[in-house]
């Protein structure tokens, strides 16, 4: 397989150019087809256990429960493509859920707009600190994780905030033309983000920054602005995920998103996006999120102890990173 063949035969055309030829093409090939194959195999294996799993209704139910995770994961994908990481997404989604629940009495259904704006602003602040003060992204967002969940605890009084005005969030849990609206919203976010990355220079800029930041800077790409935009996108997606979480549980809670960080990171890396940046894409994360959700559904179907779910996330993350990581970029491993 030559480099060009890998590029042109790729099922996901939003992947970055496959760097290096020959030696690494097998890895690239595996990355192109593995996530999809794993998803299909998982579904088939589980359907032998329970044939109803492949019925349209249950597939839609799976997609519906995957919506918040998918939105969260595509946001952090952009940051990871840049070569950074955003550990604050789950905490930011929890804060957004609290804000949404608190603001519905004031703004009604439109409360989603300021919530997403605030979350995007939070992401932008993290991006600015990362770029301007040159602090590692995982430290900035680890600090963000503590800050946002602290704020969520304070403004909610560490309690669940119930939503009494159900009409204000009906748009996010109704069905449109037989499809759950949460799925449509998530797909909309995927399409918009995918289109921006594909049809504007943004996608190439993001990948270039992730691939070789110095080269990108010399080529005249506004590296700082691209990074801040990536963190802003990640924040906005976390805000939308928080809104979708409220629509699923009819309440906002500071603990709501806490368990979503690992599945979201797992979705990104299982999809095949390299944690070293530059390789991967939104489409991959969609498949990764579906794999994670199907795994979760499958485990409860088989009746496995909930503890194993967490262990599987851990193994998945380490295993997927080990496969997808681009070791040529790591001269000294920290």
């Amino acid at each position: 397989m030559t480099e060009t063949a890998v590029e042109t035969t790729g099922p996901r055309d939003d992947d970055g150019p496959a760097p290096g030829a020959g030696r690494r093409s097998r890895r690239d090939l595996a990355l192109l087809f593995m996530p999809g194959a794993v998803l299909v195999l998982l579904l088939l294996a589980l359907s032998t256990r329970n044939p109803d799993l492949l019925s349209p209704d249950s597939l839609l139910a799976i997609a519906d429960s995957a919506a918040p995770l998918m939105v969260l994961a595509i946001g952090v994908t952009v940051v990871i493509l840049c070569g950074g990481i955003d550990l604050s997404i789950a905490a930011l989604a929890a804060l957004s859920s609290v804000l949404f629940a608190l603001w519905i009495p004031l703004f009604g259904a439109a409360a989603a707009v300021p919530v997403i704006a605030v979350a995007a602003l939070a992401g932008a602040v993290q991006g600015l600190v990362h770029v301007k003060a040159k602090v590692n992204s995982f430290i900035v967002t680890l600090g963000g994780l503590a800050l946002w969940s602290g704020i969520a605890l304070v403004i909610s009084g560490a309690r669940t905030v119930p939503v009494t005005d159900v009409d204000a969030i009906r748009w996010a849990f109704t069905t449109v033309a037989g499809l759950p609206s949460a799925v449509l919203i998530a797909l909309g976010a995927v399409v918009v983000l995918g289109a921006v990355l594909r049809l504007t220079p943004a996608g190439r800029w993001v990948r270039a920054v992730g691939h070789a930041e110095q080269a990108a800077r010399l080529a005249g790409i506004p590296v700082g602005a691209v990074k801040v935009a990536a963190f802003t996108t990640s924040g906005a997606c976390a805000g939308l995920a928080g809104v979708l979480l409220v629509a699923r549980t009819f309440s906002g809670a500071p603990s709501l998103g806490a368990t979503l960080l690992l599945p979201a990171v797992a979705a990104v890396v299982v999809g095949g996006t390299a944690i070293t940046g530059g390789f991967g894409g939104i489409g991959r994360t969609v498949i990764g999120a579906l794999i994670v959700i199907v795994l979760r559904v499958g485990l409860s179907l088989i009746g496995v102890d909930a503890g194993f779910e967490s262990i599987i996330y851990g193994v998945l993350i380490i295993g997927a990173v080990a496969v997808t990581i681009d070791r040529t970029k790591l001269d000294v491993l920290k």
């Binding site: 990481i85 944690i275 380490i318 990173v321 080990a322 790591l330 491993l333 920290k334």
Partner: peptide, 8 residues
């Protein structure tokens, strides 16, 4: 496996 420690 040569993975960054924050991921491991």
């Amino acid at each position: 496996l040569r993975i960054p420690t924050f991921m491991t």
